[in-house]
Design a protein around this nucleic acid. Structure first.
Length: 348
DNA sequence: AATAGCGACAACCGCCTCCAT
DNA sequence: CATGGAGGCGGTTGTCGCTAT
């Protein structure tokens, strides 16, 4: 026995909205405000589902929405937040004023995912494709090796594989002597990211008794590392350096240089930029790229800029009011209490 | 000129969470 | 404490317009 529908689907209009319908919603909201969307269609004189009205308002009609294209800074933020928290579009959208979760999701699916794949980065794991392939190759418990081939045969994968020689494949292969890593099952490797996201879900539950412990487990950029054997042994002094990867590719490197020249003020003026510090962005104090921790992207800026960003991060972190902010705040606390925590090797 | 293919984006669907009762 | 409903969310589908053939 399922839940009854919120409205009579057969009698409500569906599909694209007309300007007249938009006007009715705007008029209704301007005089009554939002809330109780099930009553909106009736009161506003619309033959639409209340849920549909709410979506139309939140995704399109809201006056604070931006309808222009995404800026490079916004792109960067989306990529890094996606690397940190996965496809939690609403959380990501909250970091982008004027953007909705639908906007971000669509932009990711149509543009950014393809862009990353062209760069040779797996958009799901945010790892270099060669490493993803080597991870797959190392999983001997696959029923048959055709799985790997079907992965490679994916059209998009074909496009990116021959485009570059990726330097880190050998570097990753050189770090397989860690015994703790060997103790992990292959299944663990496959599901390490899934696990991370699962724990995020658990932690986001307000009444979960394990919330605090989960947050503590997640509250640093090592959340990947803690559960990913390969990442674990590469951080913080990973032999793989993103900077080398970025430098090695003229296309990518020129894009980063362009980004570097862009005005970072926009990023810094975001309501809660503290996410930058935790979502994988590593800010360098000099003009040389520094090796970012595994799964992150390094962004350079001049020292004063870096200081300003860090400063602002500190300010905003104290104002955190969301789940992510909670995690980030906790991270800051732990970093202060255990300044060397990122230097410690994790062994589970 | 017709049309197939594709990308972008709007909208929908169904599940989940939260909260009022 | 249990339950039902509203709203939130992520994944998927539909539609439109542009481009290549």
């Amino acid at each position: 026995m399922g839940r009854p529908p919120c409205c009579d689907k057969s009698n409500v209009k569906r599909g694209l909205w007309t300007p007249e319908e938009d006007a009715k919603i705007l008029a209704y909201v301007s005089s009554h405000g939002t809330g109780n969307w099930t009553l909106v269609p009736k009161k506003a004189g619309l033959n639409r589902c209340g849920k549909s009205c709410r979506l139309r308002w939140t995704n399109y009609l809201r006056p604070d929405l931006k309808h222009d294209g995404f800026t490079p800074q916004e792109e960067m933020l989306i990529i890094n937040l996606h690397a940190a928290i996965g496809s939690r579009w609403s959380l990501i959208a909250r970091r982008l004023p004027g953007r909705t979760d639908n906007d971000v999701k669509n932009y990711w699916n149509t543009k950014l995912r393809k862009k990353l794949m062209k760069m040779g980065i797996d958009p799901i794991t945010h790892k270099p494709v060669s490493q993803v392939l080597s991870d797959l190759g190392s999983i001997s418990t696959f029923p048959n090796t055709n799985n790997q081939m079907s992965f490679v045969n994916n059209a998009s994968m074909k496009n990116m594989l021959p485009t570059r020689t990726e330097p880190y494949a050998s570097q990753y292969s050189s770090i397989t002597t860690n015994t703790s890593a060997k103790n992990h099952t292959k299944v663990d490797q496959v599901h390490s990211l899934d696990h991370q996201y699962h724990v995020f879900s658990e932690a986001s539950s307000s009444n979960s008794s394990s919330t605090s412990s989960n947050i503590e487990r997640l509250c640093s950029t090592q959340s990947y590392s803690n559960h990913n054997p390969q990442a674990q042994i590469t951080t913080p002094c990973s032999s793989f350096e993103w900077s080398a990867f970025l430098h090695s590719d003229p296309f990518i490197w020129s894009e980063f240089q362009q980004l570097q020249q862009c005005d970072m003020q926009m990023v810094m003026s975001l309501p809660k930029p503290s996410g930058l510090m935790q979502s994988g962005i590593v800010i360098s104090n000099n003009n040389d790229q520094v090796g970012a921790s595994e799964g992150s992207v390094a962004v350079t800026c001049d020292p004063s800029m870096s200081y300003q960003m860090k400063k602002q991060c500190e300010v905003h972190s104290s104002l955190g009011d969301s789940f992510v902010d909670g995690i980030l705040d906790k991270d800051s606390e732990i970093r202060e209490a255990f300044p060397n925590i990122l230097d410690a090797a994790f062994d589970y």
